[in-house]
Computed example of a mutant assay.
Amino acid sequence: MPRTERWGRPYPDNRDWSIYNALLVKRGEFYLSLDFIDRWDEHLSQMNAGKRGRPFQYPESFIAWMAGIHTFLQMPYRQMEGFVRRLAAFIPGLKAADYTTLFRRIQRLDLSLPVVPELLGEDIIVAADSTGIKVTNRGEWMREKWRVRRGWIKLHVMIDVETNQALGLEITDESVQDDQMFIPLLDQTQQHGSEEHPVYRVLADGAYDRNELFNTLEQRRIASGIKTRVDAATHSTGSPYRAECVRDRNRWGGYPMWSRVVTYGMRWKAEGFFSGFKRIFGEGVQATSQEGMFREIRMKVNCYNRMLALAGGQAS
């Protein structure tokens, strides 16, 4: 089979590896970032101000830290109680919580996507994509022999190609198509970007080649980096902006030049996000209910975003 010539430009790796190595080492500080201990009493007083009923005994920052330990180390709740009890014996100011308290408080945590706006550029270029998360470790033989099929979960994200932060996050089952989550992802991304960091361009593959998505981009004055079909119409068939993008692609001589103009190659940052995410957290989930699976994945993405922010947005 003849080898197909690569028309895309190779990615120039210009990063300073000494700085990059230091940033990767710094990520290890995430596991034992105990800054919340210094503001333990302050956080508790704020949480209990005007509260009726039993007051909180543990600040939200401590619960969020324990949720990170649970997520990264996949530590069961009873073991977490023993872990923090032993850790409290060495660290003044740290108070141990029982496993039932940890479980209930972690289940009530705010799981909105954490984003550091200070790391974002003036004009944001984002990449949209999705990946599958396994819901069982059953192998191919089990599925074939016993006709067991539980499907998978889809993780939809929009990634800032400069900082690698996830700016939009949606979790669905396998029946939901990628393009159906595009507008909700874009809404979240624009909320995180605000007027100071507007979204300039969206990069996406052919799964997002839909008229309504091009119309949405045109209405919001966002440039398209969506890959259109080879035989796409050059006249309006429901989206004048899509037809304009197709004419531009043809005028530039096809996909190779089009990809350079719109920096379509940077869409690989979404693939890099998924690769780093799965290397750290694995390709499956431990929860058994769908709601628990969705919460588990959201907690993992939140922790990964915080880790990227701690390391200055460098990819793993």
Rank of each mutant, 00 (worst) to 15 (best):
I91S: 01
I159Q: 04
W152S: 13
M299F: 09
A128L: 10
E196G: 05
A49K: 09
E140L: 10
N250P: 03
K300I: 08
I297Y: 04
S275M: 04
F182R: 03
A207E: 12
R86M: 02
R52V: 06
S275Y: 09
R210F: 09
T288D: 12
R147T: 06
A128D: 06
D13C: 08
V262H: 14
M47W: 03
A287T: 09
H192N: 14
S239F: 03
P59W: 07
F294T: 10
S112M: 11
A207L: 07
S130N: 04
E218L: 07
V301A: 05
R108E: 15
R247I: 11
N48G: 00
G193M: 04
K269Q: 14
W252A: 14
L113Q: 14
R138L: 05
G253M: 10
R247E: 14
T263W: 09
W141V: 06
W268C: 12
G93T: 07
T228D: 04
R85M: 00
Q188C: 01
W258P: 08
M266Y: 09
D178E: 09
Q188T: 07
F214K: 11
Y11A: 11
R221W: 14
W146L: 06
T288C: 03
R78Q: 06
F72L: 15
D209F: 05
L308Y: 05
V115K: 13
R9H: 04
V148A: 04
L186R: 04
V176Q: 07
A89N: 02
E244R: 12
R27V: 11
E5Y: 11
F72D: 12
G68A: 08
I133W: 00
H43E: 10
V176G: 05
M75P: 03
Q286A: 07
Q57L: 13
Q107K: 15
R9A: 11
N48W: 03
E144H: 03
S45D: 03
A96F: 00
D129P: 03
A97Q: 05
G193E: 07
A243P: 02
G272H: 12
E196Y: 05
E122I: 03
A287C: 03
V84M: 00
T189D: 08
I125H: 05
S175I: 04
T263R: 15
D209I: 08
